[in-house]
Amino acid sequence: MGENLEGARADADAHVWASADEDLGEVSLVMTDSGEIKTVMVRKPSSSQACIIDWINFTVLEDTFFKTARQTLVTDDQIIEEASRQFEKIFGFGITGKRDRGMYFYRESWVLGDGMGFVCFGGQRSTMLVNLSGQGCQNAVGGWEKRLFDFLTTVAVRPSISRIDLAHDDIDGRYLSVDWAYDQYEQGGYTHKAGGRPPNIERVGNWTRPTGKGRTLTIGLRSSSKYLRVYEKGRKEGDKSSPWCRCEVEFKNTNTVIPFDVLLNPTDFFAAAYPCFAHFVHVDTPKRMAVKAKTAQITVDACIEVTKHQFGKYIRVFRELWGDKEALDLICNETEDYWPKRMKPLTSNATSGPVPVHKQAPARVPSFLQFITAVPSFGLNGENGFV
């Protein structure tokens, strides 16, 4: 493959590799089914648990759900219901409602859980894309990484991970900061080879006179297969004096194959991302629940401060006029979905939120289609299946 890359495909692929703007170090090359040459994510064995998965996008063929349902699913609603049933087994929450528009170039999209991510379906070669956001990763039932690995490797038809974010937190700010991250750039800490081309760098926020709103350092290009964000997480959440800093690497399958093993051993791939990560990959990152508890503490304190600043005077007058109970009854929101968007992550878990679609009223199948029960060899859109 090395000869092909230098020879026949050199001119065709030159623009791809020149635009990557990233040094991947020692890599292995593979050829995909479509004939593309891609690198495989680098792995460096580690004994610690230095990161958590904070975001994942993956795709599977719709045939996956014919397989799990053990019958032909005729309508899109039936496929979505079966997908919801499977995702509830994996994450603890299923698909809860349809959105009014598509996303990620898919024709339609649905909400996963109580705003834990999205499911996209329709118009993309019979594939389904699942997006589990940072909130979804945080609130999924423990062990979801192993269950998803098992699903993708033993059940799913033609699965692929298109994006995964790995994050390391230093809640006390003992060794990780945006200033440390910038110093590492000056020292070549993001370049694997001596004298190699340094990646793109950007500083976001007020670095000259910090305002407490938080600063961010990014390494690489957002369009690249690897993109680093180091930011003041605590200040972003609302605590202007918090030392909490997060280091987050976003991997995409633009020019890289993301192996399923990253779900079981994320630290091995995180450790190999940049040379400077050797400074802290041997330190265990806080457990997911510790991160959630810290986020909750900062969020509640910030919400109290905002309420006190904007409405404190009104509330105090209402107490004097009507007393505590009547005043609260007057000003409380009466809608069912009364939790503010900012505070929803504090209570969201696998058992809360809207009812998933597979537990709602079943989708109606036209009577003239109910005779179809056999599973076609290659799905509804396959050459040997129903057209």
Rank of each mutant, 00 (worst) to 15 (best):
A12C: 13
D13R: 07
V16M: 12
W17P: 04
W17N: 08
E22T: 14
L24T: 07
G25I: 09
E26R: 13
V27G: 10
V27I: 15
S28H: 15
V30F: 15
T32Y: 15
D33A: 05
I37A: 14
T39P: 07
S48K: 08
I52C: 11
T64S: 11
F65H: 01
F66G: 00
A69K: 02
R70K: 04
D77N: 05
E82Y: 02
R85K: 11
R85F: 09
E88L: 07
K89Y: 08
I95Y: 00
T96Q: 01
K98T: 02
R101C: 12
Y106A: 03
E108P: 01
W110S: 00
V111Y: 03
D114L: 04
D114Q: 09
G115I: 03
G115S: 07
F118Y: 11
V119L: 10
G123C: 05
Q124E: 06
T127N: 11
Q135C: 11
G136C: 04
G136E: 02
C137R: 00
N139A: 11
V141M: 10
L148N: 00
D150M: 06
V155L: 02
V157H: 04
R158H: 14
R158P: 05
P159R: 03
I161T: 03
R163H: 10
R163W: 09
R163Y: 12
R163V: 06
D169I: 05
D170C: 05
R174V: 13
S177Y: 02
V178Q: 01
W180T: 03
Q184F: 15
G188L: 14
G189E: 07
G189D: 06
Y190R: 01
T191P: 09
H192Q: 11
K193M: 14
A194S: 13
G195L: 13
G195W: 06
N200A: 15
E202W: 07
G205C: 05
G205W: 03
G212S: 03
G212A: 07
G214L: 03
L221V: 14
R222Q: 15
R229N: 10
V230N: 00
Y231M: 04
E232H: 04
G234S: 03
K236I: 07
K236H: 08
K240W: 10
R246V: 02
F277K: 01
A278M: 11
F280K: 01
V291H: 01
I298V: 09
I298D: 05
T299P: 03
T299M: 12
D301W: 03
I304Y: 09
H309T: 13
Y314G: 15
R316L: 12
F318T: 05
R319Q: 09
K325Y: 11
K325A: 11
L330F: 12
C332L: 11
N333V: 12
E334M: 13
N349A: 14
S352Y: 07
P354H: 04
V357I: 11
H358L: 04
A363K: 01
R364Q: 15
V365S: 05
F368S: 13
Q370G: 10
Q370V: 15
P376M: 15
G382D: 09
E383K: 12
E383V: 12
G385S: 15
